[in-house]
């Protein structure tokens, strides 16, 4: 049955329309979760507010579980679901640069749009920065094209990488997430902050 667009149950244009609605739901949930506040987002790195960690990991494990159950019931063919390609070197480099950007800017791209939507001026400035950053990357692209394409590993799933089943890996991920949530709530009590 799913993914609907691959099996031509919906057309390409309907797909784009639904992308818009998925975006609305995505933005709504992010804002309701508190992702429109940079101090809330940055809080996870100092332990005073771990909402990012909770929402992010709950979301990831819920979606992973959901996909596996959908596949089990025959509702979705996972071989037609996009799996991100892995380019080892540039993935790590990109992650490091983004990590520094995160702690300096207090937002990531998705949340900055969300923050800008409710009038956060720092989020709007962050978005301006995003555009400049992507433009700079584009202009200098020939310099690091080799690095960008190095370490290509295909589109492996992490469960294949460790040689265990997807279900078992998901269970391990859930256990890790639950332990992190427990630690996070402990940290919030230990490093409380006043209203912001």
């Amino acid at each position: 049955m799913g993914p609907l667009v691959v099996n031509e149950i919906i057309s390409d244009n309907t797909n784009l329309l639904l992308a818009f609605f998925i975006g609305i739901a995505f933005g709504f949930v992010l804002e309701q979760g508190g992702f429109s506040s940079s101090r809330k987002l940055a809080g996870v790195f100092y332990g005073y507010d771990t909402v990012v960690l909770k929402v992010f990991f709950t979301g990831a494990v819920t979606a992973a579980l959901g996909l596996l159950f959908f596949s089990l019931f025959g509702w979705i063919d996972l071989s037609f679901v996009y799996v991100n390609e892995t380019f080892l070197h540039s993935a790590i480099l990109g992650g490091v640069i983004m990590g520094v950007g995160f702690i300096m800017g207090g937002y990531c791209p998705g949340t900055s749009f969300c923050g800008a939507a409710i009038g956060k001026i720092d989020a709007m400035v962050f978005i301006v920065g995003l555009f400049i950053g992507v433009f700079l990357f584009a202009e200098g692209y020939p310099l690091y094209e080799k690095l960008y394409k190095a370490g290509y590993m295909g589109s492996p799933r992490i469960s294949e990488f460790f040689g265990i089943t997807e279900g078992l890996f998901t269970l391990l991920m859930i256990i890790a997430a639950v332990l992190m949530f427990w630690g996070a709530e402990w940290a919030e009590k230990k490093f409380p902050r006043e209203e912001y």
């Binding site: 993935a91 990109g94 992650g95 490091v96 640069i97 520094v100 962050f126 920065g129 950053g133």
Partner: peptide, 15 residues
Amino acid sequence: ALAGGILFGIGSQFG
């Protein structure tokens, strides 16, 4: 915020 945005823009392309 601007500096962070620029870095995130560059990093997201590498990543």
